[in-house]
Each structure stands twice: as structure tokens, then as C-alpha cells.
């Protein structure tokens, strides 16, 4: 089970991207996500393996952001979404990334896989506010984050993007297993029952 978190400002199309990828549907209506929601995509083929992806859609609006369970924990990949026609949503990516790192506190933040999606490229070119060049420069600066320009409405690049997301998530999951195997050995020198811990 690969756990993928989708983050970004409100109205950039997180839910739509997820819907498009999982159920090949698109709705023009905007409905704010409340708290968090997830969809599961089964039998995702990554190279020679079949994996199940759990996609966590999150509320972009501050007032609806979840407060309860720390669903960021145990994530294998984080997808940062912005709207190419909205410069502010692009500028917020950095904060979203930082917020994710704090919430998830991955062991190795530098190698944790992020994927950036510039959504809504179906909108006419004249309204575009963030150039591909600028987005690529950002991704480059943050450690070569894969970047895709997508349209959930017209299903452009969505499958391709999620393929990379799945692959990177799988790598992360495997490395996490590896590291947790070795960095937190069971301490045989202690008589007390030190139970399972966060790992």
C-alpha cells in the first residue's frame, strides 16, 4: 500500500486530479474538500509489480483543514499541486512542502519524494501566470522534483504524472523499510518490555 498525500492551495484541482486518475471523471463544479478524504487505486502497475495506491486528498482551504489524526504520517510520496493560472498558488508550494515535512517528519527529508503538478493547462494561454520555466527552476532548486503540467479536465498528463508518483512512492516505501530495519534495532540488553515504537 503506497500512501500518497496531495497538497496545494484551495481550488487548484487536487480533488479533480485524483478523481480523474482514479475514476476517469471530471466535474466542473467546485466543492471544497472538508478535512481529508482518500481514494484507493488498485492494481497500479509499477515496472513489474502491482501495487495499491492510497491517495489522500486534503482540504486546501484553511478553515477546512484537518485537525484530528496525523494522516501525513507514513506517507510515501507528496504531490504538490498548483494552478498554472494562479501565481499565488505556485508561490505557496514552498510552504506546503515545508508544512508537509514538519507534519510527516520523514527520516531523510532530502530524499523524500515530492512531485509538482501544474494543473489547469487547458485554460487559454493568455491567462497563464506561471511559466514552465519558472516552475522547472523551482523544482530544480528543491532537489530535482519531477514536474508535470496537467489538466484534470482534459486528462492531460494525469496518468503519466501518477505513474511517476507511484514509482517514487514505491522507492520511498522500500527505502523506509530498509532504514527502519536498521536504525531502530530491538534492544536485547533491556529487560523491560520496550514495545513497538514509532517507525
Amino acid at each position: 500500500m503506497l500512501k500518497v498525500i496531495i497538497l496545494g492551495d484551495s481550488g487548484v484541482g487536487k480533488t479533480s486530479l485524483m478523481q480523474q486518475y482514479v475514476s476517469k471523471k471530471f466535474s466542473n463544479q467546485y466543492k471544497a474538500t472538508i478535512g481529508a478524504d482518500f481514494l484507493t487505486k488498485q492494481d497500479v502497475r509499477v515496472d513489474d509489480r502491482n501495487v495499491t495506491m492510497q491517495l489522500w486528498d486534503t482540504a486546501g482551504q484553511e478553515r477546512f483543514q484537518s485537525l484530528g489524526v496525523a494522516f501525513y504520517r507514513g506517507a510515501d510520496c507528496c504531490v504538490l499541486v498548483y494552478d498554472v493560472n494562479n501565481a499565488k498558488s505556485f508561490e505557496a508550494l514552498d510552504s506546503w512542502r515545508d508544512e508537509f515535512l514538519i507534519q510527516a517528519s520523514p527520516r531523510d527529508p532530502e530524499s523524500f519524494p515530492f512531485v509538482v503538478l501544474g494543473n489547469k493547462i487547458d485554460v487559454e494561454e493568455s491567462k497563464r501566470a506561471v511559466s514552465q520555466k519558472r516552475a522547472l527552476a523551482f523544482c530544480q532548486a528543491k532537489g530535482n522534483i519531477p514536474y508535470f503540467e496537467t489538466s484534470a479536465k482534459e486528462a492531460i498528463n494525469v496518468d503519466q504524472a501518477f505513474e511517476v508518483i507511484a514509482r517514487n512512492a514505491l522507492v520511498q516505501e522500500e527505502s523506509e523499510e530498509y532504514s527502519s530495519d536498521f536504525s531502530d534495532p530491538i534492544n536485547i540488553h533491556l529487560d523491560n518490555d520496550r514495545g513497538g515504537c514509532c517507525s
Partner: peptide
Amino acid sequence: MDARTLAKAVRCLLIYLID
């Protein structure tokens, strides 16, 4: 060995602090 345990304790503290 014990250092790891302590590191673990600190790591677990993150659960609480982040929440």
C-alpha cells in the same frame, strides 16, 4: 544501544509535538 532508545523517545515526541 541506549542512545538509540533515547533517539527513539525523541522521535516519538515528535508525534505529540506535531499534533
